[in-house]
């Protein structure tokens, strides 16, 4: 099996442009939710924006991540209002608004809206991430936000913690690298997302996989074919994520260690999964197809059987050749 050819096919069959109709539905729904929030909260809310994988140029077409970050003003919930009150208020607003057409769920730092299947059977999922500026009008200056942690998030305890971060800096950091290094970083991130998507529920967030991929590229020289690069990144994660000294700096706030978004058990699971994957692929190339499946919906069957001519023995170039 040609591993590189397969991986290139995995990437091309997962291109977001191949699911234009579904993608357009997501954009439309995201805009509807955004407008509903703006209408309800008025001037208490700055401009909500999408921070999902599409915004970061790392999207795949089997799972659109649409995260609608909603930046609130400091006093939006009263001068003594808490982050918990912000989170609950947004939850109840979305629940009342969408309870008949969607499942509305409290999640780690977001509120999940899962709209019931439409006539095409498509299910649209939008995550709303409420955040609040640290002090009145400060968001305009530096775009920093406090997020509320609804339930235990790795080593970050529920309720007791707030995450201060700059979501726009997070997006730009990944987007810039994924765009500039599209044959390496972007492809590897997309492949890791395809792998993560083969699992029903997985504790490692896509955001973490994006950042650890970038860290791997920054930590060592990663070159060669697409398989060579993927293998090196898998080895890097396997060997480093469980180290006591391993940290993953949040591009939105260097004081945050995103390694804390995983418990030590979850880190061990991630490392073990990388180890197993590498060993099974080493045993048999074909196992690559299980971990990194093509999107069969868009798989093009080869329509011709043309081949490069087979050579017998070592070809010797003609002794003299002239080019113009």
């Amino acid at each position: 099996m040609d591993k590189n050819k397969h991986l290139e096919s995995v990437i091309s069959t997962h291109q977001i442009t191949k699911e234009k109709t579904l993608f357009d539905k997501y954009v439309k729904k995201k805009n509807e939710v955004k407008e509903a929030l703006e209408e309800n909260y008025g001037s208490d809310l700055y401009y909500p924006f999408n921070s999902g994988s599409y915004a970061k140029n790392t999207a795949i077409n089997t799972k659109f991540d649409f995260d609608l970050v909603s930046p609130f003003k400091r006093n939006a919930f009263g001068s003594n209002g808490t982050l918990k009150e912000m989170y609950e208020d947004v939850y109840y607003f979305l629940y009342e608004k969408y309870k008949d057409v969607a499942e509305v769920k409290k999640q780690k730092v977001s509120i999940g809206l899962e709209f019931y299947a439409d006539s095409d059977g498509d299910v649209i999922k939008i995550d709303v991430v409420p955040g609040r500026e640290l002090s009145q009008d400060q968001y305009r200056e530096d775009e920093n936000l406090n997020l509320y942690v609804y339930y235990k998030y790795g080593n970050i305890d529920a309720g007791s913690e707030r995450i201060k971060t700059n979501v726009k800096a997070q997006i730009n950091n990944i987007k810039d690298r994924a765009t500039a290094e599209k044959d390496s970083i972007r492809k590897i991130i997309r492949l890791l997302k395809v792998w993560k998507n083969t699992k029903y529920i997985y504790p490692t967030k896509s955001f973490f996989l994006e950042l650890i991929t970038i860290k791997a590229f920054d930590s060592k020289s990663i070159t060669g074919s697409i398989w060579d690069k993927l293998e090196t990144v898998l080895q890097y994660i396997r060997d480093n994520v469980t180290k006591e000294s391993f940290t993953q700096k949040d591009p939105g706030n260097s004081s945050n260690d995103l390694a804390d978004t995983l418990t030590s058990t979850e880190k061990q699971q991630l490392s073990d999964d990388m180890k197993n994957m590498l060993e099974r692929i080493e045993e048999n190339d074909e196992n690559l197809k299980t971990y990194f499946p093509e999107n069969t919906k868009f798989k093009k069957e080869d329509t011709n059987n043309n081949q490069y001519g087979k050579n017998s023995g070592m070809p010797i170039p003609p002794p003299k050749l002239n080019f113009g």
Partner: peptide, 22 residues
């Protein structure tokens, strides 16, 4: 490719020792 380049390609495919068809 120039005409000389095409001619070079033809030399390659017609060379028995070279044995590459493409």
């Amino acid at each position: 490719p120039s005409a000389t380049d095409i001619s070079a390609i033809n030399t390659i495919i017609n060379s028995k020792k070279t044995s590459i068809a493409n």
